[in-house]
Design a protein around this nucleic acid. Structure first.
Length: 833
RNA sequence: GGGCUCGUGGUCUAGGGGUUAUGACGUCGCCUUCACAUGGCGAAGAUCGCCGGUUCAAUUCCGGCCGAGCCCA
């Protein structure tokens, strides 16, 4: 046997250390990096802008989110491979109450005890350290973002867009100020949106209170909020409830003392009453819950303001004035008891609404706040989103469901600090407002209006003239102190990355934004609000495609959370195997603590796992042991195929098909072209799963097990056609596979073929179009594959049966007639006699 | 309490009205050493959550129930 040249790929196998050194090289050379991945709108290619979810830096990055980002990267890379000019932005969402909490916790001081400017500085420096950790993880998992164009939602350029959009919508009348019931967190002192409310189970006391009608009839009403009696506007019963029909129209006395209001309320009918709950009679207060809000609105009642901004009872509560809500509740119960109006108290489990971030029980109170009008535009939004392709299609339903529930406008003002400021000043008489010109970022709590600001009528929004001219007539102006809800910022992300305001020429070509990838848990917030903005501002659908992924779960299918102790750190998985260190994780399972171990994972294996293991939209279980077991072997196999190929000389020109291809070369090319056709279509459809599965099946199955075994001897004999076929397939395979494993394929292709797979900007074309799927010859050759695999398998099995090694001759293995064209090859391969 | 989604060998997963239900991991047996034991061949292992209905035929369609997840009240 003659000595074979050393393989061009020197490493014996794929390793995490190799992966890391390739990665470091990849990110170190900035010029090269930008040439590969930076957005160049002038390239002449079709634009494909990805509205990357800007992560919120809060210490560690959740592994489920990192997995999702790696798939967004796969999409970005696959679109580049298809020849698109991809903008894969890297943005970081840094506004918000979370960082305020972190600073409060770190310094053990409440926000409002600081100077506002001082507190903002603390927030900014704290969030910057978290941001840096996130940038590192982004590179470690291989994201090909345009990092030089990083945007931060707390930076002036981003905030100016938010402010400009506010001014625009205010002028159009789509943003209004109003005194309305608001969900309010009295502990944090801020309004919050519907979407930020969650429910926690808590024990509460349900008290049955005796009320007395004008005519002396007594009725019993159950309530968990006796302190709200002072804000009661009406007592209601169900229209079908025979028991109480006679009460309708009567007046009942409030069972507690109040101040400055009528001491009786009417009894009316309302269908929202649950007749089987308690006595079936409901007191409606401003505001015990959302249903109360609806009843007040529907019956046209004037609400009372019973709770102030600090969460204390107001004047209307009479003797309870000044008490906190909880104290007032106790006191009210006590007073009812003393008056003999208390029938009974029952302890029960109830889900109470709390703020998502502070976990404080929220109140619904009347406040003057800023709102984005949204109820009037739902029908138009529905029409516009028809044009958006959802991946998977069924996840469109999450959005529709949420939209079905929209009944009130979106409150966007918050009484917090580390957020974008509401860009408005009020005249001394409060009838006029000053707004800044488009493109500027202002902080009205400390700045004066900049040049170019306009004066508007506060109610009619009529433009009264420039601020410079009218300045003296406004009196002392007051800057707005409130800020925006963070969704007001992040729902501009697609506009921002598509060039809105900043790059009008790009925006024209890039909008609707090609792709919004995100998790399904923020459909009702991020996706919904973004689409709302696109509708209000541009009357367009915000996106061409929306790709909604499932959630990362623990190995038992449960949500990962701190309280369950079942979290897995992203970096530990990506670094598993580096420097020979193994990974081990202690995870709390349903039956106690479980120890998981893996030897090597890294980014390529991690990405391959996510690409192969779950379809988009499905929740996925994250188990490092399984990731390694199921997918590291695939990398090893593919690496070995490439390494094996790399010992044979690479033909001068891989584009020119040799004249003398053998039948098995034609066969594998037909199979390869069929695979590649599937892969190309899958990449076009943003279908990562199908593309990766097809490549994996071909690359670890037919190619090595059957084709390589068939042509080995030809390769050793220096057969040019076999070498050409193998190299052409390996090279193009690496290109098609590069979106999933960019560093792996880069290494192989750059080392063996001198051109990196990550730079390929056209999907590899089939070398023999006459063998494409759909052609007769292509179909014929592919149809032989089953028979061929079956024959090879039977032969190997027969040798095993006979106890002989694979390179021993074997008798009585007739080659099936269909495989006639391969008979010489098969005879030589199996040593058939 | 409501809505939506999901429920396929031990584990994860493909599929879809019709003869023996896909693949992977794991398990077991055997093989090999001239690309690859991080390999190859083979075997065992599923009443496709449960109960009804539609149908000549359902795991696949419909309804109910149970379980999981997300969201809402």
């Amino acid at each position: 046997m003659r000595h074979m040249p050393d393989p061009k790929l020197p490493e014996k196998r794929w390793s995490i250390d190799l992966e890391k050194s390739i990665q470091e090289e990849h990110y170190a050379d900035k010029n090269l990096y930008n040439r590969r991945y930076a957005f160049n709108p002038e390239s002449g290619k079709e634009l494909f802008v990805v509205d990357t979810p800007p992560p919120y830096p809060s210490g560690t990055w959740h592994i489920g989110a990192v997995a999702q980002y790696s798939m967004i990267d796969v999409i970005a890379r696959s679109q580049r491979l298809l020849g698109k000019e991809v903008f894969f932005p890297w943005g970081v969402d840094r506004n918000g109450i979370n960082i305020e909490f972190t600073v409060e916790k770190n310094t053990k001081r409440k926000m409002k005890t600081y100077e506002r400017a001082e507190f903002l500085k603390l927030c900014e420096s704290t969030i910057e350290t978290f941001t840096q950790a996130m940038r590192d993880t982004a590179r470690r998992v291989g994201l090909s973002c345009d990092f030089d164009r990083e945007y931060l939602t707390d930076a002036p350029d981003y905030r100016s867009v938010t402010q400009s959009i506010f001014v625009e919508l205010f002028k159009k009348g789509d943003i209004v100020e109003d005194l309305r019931p608001n969900i309010y967190d009295p502990v944090e002192g801020t309004t919050i949106a519907d979407a930020e409310v969650e429910r926690l189970p808590r024990k509460t006391k349900l008290v049955d209170v005796r009320w007395v009608c004008e005519d002396g009839e007594e009725l019993v009403i159950s309530t968990t909020r006796p302190e709200m009696i002072c804000a009661c506007g009406v007592v209601v019963v169900h229209p079908d409830d025979e028991r109480y029909r006679h009460l309708v129209g009567k007046s009942v006395h409030l069972p507690l003392e109040t101040a400055g209001r009528s001491t009786t309320v009417p009894v009316m009918q309302h269908p929202s009453v649950k007749s089987e709950f308690g006595s079936g009679i409901l007191m409606v207060c401003s505001f015990g819950d959302q249903n109360d809000v609806a009843v007040f609105r529907e019956l046209g009642l004037t609400p009372f303001q019973a709770i102030d901004l600090d969460g204390n009872m107001t004047e209307v509560a009479g003797p309870l004035q000044g008490l906190s809500v909880l104290e007032a509740r106790k006191q009210a119960t006590l007073m009812l008891e003393q008056q003999g109006a208390l029938v009974q108290v029952v302890e029960r489990e109830q889900e109470i609404p709390v703020s998502e971030r502070g976990k404080n029980p929220v109140e619904i109170i009347l406040l003057k706040e800023w709102y984005v009008r949204q109820t009037h535009i739902q029908d138009r939004m529905r029409e516009l989103i028809e044009d958006i392709t959802f991946h998977p299609p069924r996840n469109r339903q999450f959005l529709i469901d949420w939209m079905d529930n929209i009944s009130i406008d979106w409150p966007i003002s918050r009484r917090r600090w580390y957020h974008t400021e509401i860009p408005i000043w009020y005249s001394e008489d409060e009838r006029r407002v000053v707004v800044p010109p488009a493109g500027s970022y202002v902080q009205p709590w400390r700045d004066s209006p900049p040049d170019g600001s306009r004066v508007l009528d506060r109610i009619t929004r009529e433009d009264l003239g420039s601020f410079e001219e009218l300045k003296s007539s406004l009196g002392t102006i007051t800057g707005e102190e409130k800020v925006f809800d963070t969704w007001m910022d992040s729902s501009n992300s697609n506009l921002f990355v598509s060039g809105y305001l900043n790059h009008p020429d790009v925006f024209e070509r890039a909008f609707p934004t090609a792709l919004r990838p995100q998790g399904k848990e923020i459909v009702r917030t991020w996706l919904y609000y973004t689409l709302l903005k696109s509708t209000l501002v541009l009357d367009q659908p915000g996106f061409q495609h929306v790709w909604i992924d499932g959630l990362g779960m623990d190995p038992w299918g449960r949500k990962m959370s701190k309280s369950l102790g079942n979290g897995i750190d992203a970096d530990s998985v990506l670094e598993c195997g580096a420097g020979g260190r193994t990974g081990s994780w202690k995870v709390k399972g349903p039956d106690g603590s479980v120890s998981l171990q893996a030897n090597k994972i890294g980014s390529e294996c991690f990405r391959l796992w996510k690409a192969c293991d779950a379809q988009v939209g499905d929740d996925f279980q994250i188990n490092p042991e399984e990731i390694e077991k199921k997918y590291f072997g695939v990398l090893t196999k593919l690496f070995n195929v490439a390494r094996f190929a790399s010992q044979f000389e690479v033909p001068e020109n891989l584009e020119v098909v040799p004249a003398e291809l053998a039948p098995e070369d034609m066969w594998i090319l037909a199979e390869f072209q069929s695979t590649m056709d599937h892969v190309r279509m899958a990449w076009e459809n943003l279908d990562i799963y199908t593309a990766t599965q097809a490549l994996k099946t071909f690359g670890t199955g037919l190619l090595p097990s059957h084709y390589l075994e068939m042509v080995k001897s030809r390769l050793y004999d220096d057969d040019k056609a076999a070498a050409w076929t193998l190299h052409r397939i390996v090279r193009d395979f690496m290109s098609a596979f590069s979106p999933v494993c960019p560093f792996f394929t880069h290494h192989v292709s750059a080392t063996v073929y001198g051109a990196s797979a990550v730079e390929v900007d056209a999907f590899p074309s089939p070398p023999l179009p006459e063998l494409n799927p759909g052609t007769d010859e292509g179909r014929r050759l592919c149809s032989l594959s089953t028979t061929l695999q079956d024959f090879n398998g039977r032969t190997w099995a027969a040798k095993k049966e006979a106890g002989i090694s694979l390179n021993q001759p074997i008798e009585n293995m007739p080659i099936p007639d269909e495989l006639g064209e391969f008979s010489a090859t098969l005879t030589r391969m199996h040593h058939l006699v």
